[in-house]
Nucleic acid binder design. Structure first.
Length: 438
DNA sequence: AACCTCACG
DNA sequence: ACGTACGTGAGGTTC
């Protein structure tokens, strides 16, 4: 939507049509009672955030672009030299043909639904050692992604009048109740590798301000602990220990001090997997360990957290009986496939039954926090501006004189949305860019 | 417009 | 025998 249209919508105090659409969509999903408490006020908050926008250091991105584009060309040439002719490295079809038909790097290469060879990152990672071209293709892909999706794309979306990028938050697309962000999507800005971190550095505060970032610590696992009521998981959180270390200690039946980094890594993957309704196969793939070991790990997990297993079974049972599952606040997700004869289709619905109440409750919680934070920013006459929401994280541009007050408002409102059986913790940092604040 | 791949939580 | 972790959006290729 054009920025001027957005302003008009704001001035009109939310257009009637927008309200109708939102109301229609959300009432179907069980929000009858919470519609006026959450989604309507949130619509105002999102409109304010979109108008606030976020500042980008386009000069830094331009310099990155120059360097990385040159690097990309070098890698491309190296790849072409390795096979002896030039081809389109961005074409999965051509890459697959070269790796599997020509170089025969895997005689039982996995195919996609359409019969093409799959050349996705996890597949290539497994055959990386078989040929130097694999690593270079992965490097090429990584660079190309950052350049085309972020480094080159973001500066083009800077509004000439405000000098900022203004995303659109969508309140009604995600099945679980999460927000989504488009044009640009500010919820998938890189952070995991070194080059990605450079991009985060280009997200900067207004003049005279700092970048403030606050995120919920392990909110989904805490919700799992709360909803399942599992005593061991509640204890793990209430002890203040690192949850993945605590989980590893319990699964492997050893003291916390003896948990190795490999044990913690496996427990962490198991913790996340559980929220998604993982299978033995899935965990073995993620950890690249034998199926038998993955099964042991999952058995150990459920022995450690027996009520988590019970809770998961109850979610599926509830979905079968009611046709839907719901969040702590009563947001529904309907699961029409839950009684399907097709076990694959049914499996998807069963995993949704486990995941949706957790992911959805987390979405409800941060939405309420956003409404309450904006209320207090108004009430306390602060100039702090909320700029982004990234599922369990909120970002602000904060005048230097307001830092301590803003911190207090944000953390208090995030942590006190409701009382769970475990504490709700928000970590908060400030810095001269998004990376530093995180 | 479908598909593949990949960025984030 | 089969497929195999939840939720998104965007860019490039191919048809």
């Amino acid at each position: 939507m054009d920025l001027l249209c957005k302003y008009a919508a704001e001035d009109a105090d939310i257009t009637f049509q927008l309200k109708q659409i939102l109301e229609g969509e959300l009432k179907e999903n069980g929000l009858e009672n919470l519609f006026y408490e959450i989604e309507m006020p949130l619509l105002r908050v999102l409109s304010i955030m979109e108008r606030n926008g976020v500042r980008i250091d386009s000069e830094a991105l331009r310099q990155s672009s120059e360097i990385l584009t040159a690097e990309l060309l070098v890698i491309e040439k190296e790849i072409h030299d390795l096979v002896g002719f030039s081809f389109n490295v961005s074409s999965p079809a051509q890459v697959g043909e070269i790796l599997f038909d020509r170089l025969k790097l895997d005689d039982k290469a996995k195919k996609t639904k359409t019969g093409q060879y799959s050349t996705s990152e996890d597949i290539l990672e497994k055959i990386r050692s078989k040929h130097p071209i694999i690593g270079k293709i992965l490097d090429f892909r990584g660079l190309k992604k950052l350049l085309s999706t972020y480094i080159d794309a973001l500066p083009l979306l800077i509004n000439q009048r405000t000098g900022k990028v203004h995303t659109s938050f969508n309140q009604t697309v995600a099945a679980t109740g999460r927000l989504s962000s488009t044009n640009p999507n500010l919820q998938n800005i890189p952070i995991r590798d070194a080059q990605g971190k450079e991009i985060r550095k280009a997200f900067i505060p207004d003049d005279g301000c700092v970048f403030l970032s606050a995120d919920y610590s392990q909110i989904e696992l805490r919700i799992m602990a709360h909803l399942s009521g599992d005593k061991n998981m509640l204890d793990a959180f209430n002890s203040g220990l690192d949850i993945h270390t605590a989980t590893a200690a319990k699964i492997y039946k050893i003291p916390v001090e003896e948990v190795t980094s490999d044990m913690r890594r496996k427990a962490k993957t198991a913790n996340f997997g559980i929220i998604y309704g993982i299978s033995t196969f899935g965990l073995s793939e993620r950890l690249t360990i034998p199926r038998a070991e993955a099964k042991e790990l999952i058995d150990g997990y459920f022995a450690t957290y027996p009520d988590v297993k019970r809770y998961m079974d109850e979610c599926i049972q509830r979905a079968k009986e009611n046709g839907y599952v719901e969040t702590i606040f009563g947001r529904k997700r309907f699961l029409s496939d839950i009684n399907s004869q097709n076990s694959v289709v049914r499996g998807f619905a069963e995993r949704n039954a486990i995941n949706a109440p957790i992911q959805g409750s987390a979405a409800d919680i941060i939405k309420i926090a956003m409404v309450n934070i904006q209320k207090r920013l108004f009430a306390e006459n602060l100039q702090t501006k909320m700029t982004m929401q990234v599922h369990d994280e909120l970002n602000f541009t904060v005048p230097e004189v307001e830092i301590e007050q803003a911190r207090k408002v944000v953390v208090e409102e995030m942590e006190n949305v409701l009382k769970l059986k475990v504490p709700l913790i928000a970590d908060c940092g400030v810095g001269k860019n998004w990376l530093e604040a995180h």
